[in-house]
């Protein structure tokens, strides 16, 4: 099943490559990976979406924890959490009908049009993976997708639980 892991680690050169290397070395799957420094810039936070059964997940968590740079790792999947992904997508909007329809779909999904060209709309949307997939599918039925960029998901636990030093 799909799992969302949040990892807090030292913001050191090479620490990201150690995580990525570990996943490939041990034949673990990476569906998406996002990384950026936290408000404390000595720390980075990674969110990884992966797939595996309980036994594989247990190994992933232990192996990631074993890396010297890693401070904490948690599996967000089974607890209450929020996950979001950012989509930037460029679609053809050739005529009035098409423009109206793209605008209407974007509104329904609560996205926003952030750039307009002669025949092109660029749209921004946030949401979980299901919502993004549904949006892309709807647009694809309506017009032609020129290009899209997805951030991969980021996640955070709801409530008091926090991943911090």
């Amino acid at each position: 099943m799909r799992r969302i892991l949040a990892i807090l680690l030292e913001n050191e050169p090479g620490s990201l490559s150690r995580i990525v290397g570990l996943f490939s070395q041990r034949a673990f799957n990476i569906e998406s990976l996002t990384v950026a420094p936290t408000e404390d810039n000595t720390l980075s936070r990674i969110t990884i979406a992966t797939r595996g059964d309980d036994k594989i997940l247990e190994q992933i968590l232990k192996q990631v924890n074993k890396l010297i740079d890693v401070i904490k790792v948690t599996d967000l999947t089974d607890r209450k959490h929020v996950e979001r992904e950012l989509l930037l997508i460029k679609v053809l909007a050739m005529n009035d009908k098409s423009r109206t329809e793209v605008k209407r779909i974007t509104d329904i999904f609560r996205g926003s049009i952030i750039d307009i060209g002669k025949q092109i709309y660029t749209i921004q949307l946030t949401g979980d993976a299901d919502k993004i997939n549904a949006f892309i599918e709807t647009l694809n039925n309506e017009t032609e997708i020129i290009e899209s960029a997805r951030s991969g998901c980021v996640g955070i636990a709801r409530g008091e639980k926090a991943l911090r030093v």
Partner: peptide, 16 residues
Amino acid sequence: IIGCSRPIVKHSFNCR
């Protein structure tokens, strides 16, 4: 060498 040895070390350091 950090990249070459990454899967076979406990840890490694680049001094800068």
